[in-house]
């Protein structure tokens, strides 16, 4: 079955390296996908107000477009897209009245029937491709690379949409092990990065980044991976503030988990490391990976 790939805004701009590495890896692993035509913004944050049908229209519109194009499964990469689409989908599937209201709002679209399944890339890699298969396809094992996986919030919480344990997940560690790397557990791995506070409260976000990254560093990590473009930005870019706030702070490179996947699968030229604030290339070179 072919996935409708829903990229979302940031995958086409800031997180280009995430998209390219993910897509190249999926092709290599034999997962079929096509980018959804006419996709629109997912709304980024799921509205938590009980009366707010308007704010679910964006997600349901995306879902209905996928449905009417004949897709049954939708693939997401960005945690925020995953979360909003998954939650809206769950809501309208369990609340026919709400679905009818939203369908009425979208008079220019076919009615959504609720047949699309929203998946995150990590779920597809774990459940469909399987880590065993990935292990067997690794051509450049990430041997000796000590990596702390950072999950953030929206892949894990609320519990109803979690792709793994919402407090103590391990899907990325399992993937990293299958790539030959050494995962480093950190108590901060499912903590919030500060999310959109990065717009108006850089200071707070830098505080979060410091705690998350220094906890990883203390446990011996050389590198932190994530799968969310906003987490990436907050952990990577905000290290500038962190360095300003803590004199002896040593920056640590942040990678998308798919960049490591692609590296281990021997894929070239999909990385866009120039978009990273903390340059990972010297570390990767020192490990013989570049």
């Amino acid at each position: 079955m072919v996935y409708a790939y829903y990229p979302g805004c940031t995958l086409k701009t800031h997180a280009k390296g995430f998209e390219l590495s993910a897509m190249a890896s999926l092709e290599k692993l034999g997962v079929k996908y096509r980018e959804l035509e006419k996709w629109t913004c997912c709304g980024t944050v799921y509205s938590l107000a009980s009366d707010d049908a308007m704010r679910q229209v964006a997600q349901v519109r995306i879902l209905t477009r996928a449905e009417s194009a004949g897709y049954r499964r939708m693939l997401t990469l960005c945690s925020m897209c995953y979360n909003t689409l998954k939650r809206a989908n769950m809501l309208v599937r369990s609340d026919p009245e709400r679905l009818e209201t939203i369908n009425m709002f979208m008079d220019d679209e076919p009615d959504y029937k609720g047949s699309v399944e929203v998946k995150h890339l990590l779920e597809v890699l774990r459940d469909e491709v399987t880590f065993d298969k990935i292990r067997s396809m690794v051509s450049k094992p990430l041997r000796g690379l000590r990596i702390s996986a950072y999950y953030g919030c929206l892949l894990l919480r609320p519990k109803t949409v979690s792709i793994d344990s919402s407090i103590n997940p391990h899907v990325m560690e399992d993937l990293l092990s299958s790539l030959g790397a050494e995962p480093i557990d950190s108590p901060e791995k499912a903590k919030c990065c500060g999310a959109y506070l990065t717009v108006n409260r850089k200071d707070l976000v830098a505080g979060f980044a410091y705690e998350i990254l220094s906890a990883a560093r203390r446990r011996g990590a050389e590198l932190v991976v994530t799968s969310c473009p906003l987490c990436f930005f907050n952990l990577d870019r905000r290290q500038e503030e962190v360095s300003r706030m803590y004199e002896d702070y040593k920056p640590i490179p942040i990678l998308y988990v798919t960049q490591l996947l692609a590296l281990a699968l021997g894929i070239r030229d999909v990385y866009m490391f120039n978009l990273h604030y903390v340059d990972p290339t010297s570390l990767l070179k020192s490990k013989g990976l570049l």
Binding site: A195, V199, F233
Partner: peptide, 22 residues
Amino acid sequence: SIPHGELLELPVIAMVGALRKF
């Protein structure tokens, strides 16, 4: 109130998220 240069740097999801929440 946020410097223009900083705004340009922000990913879209951060902006949309903050605007929706605030």
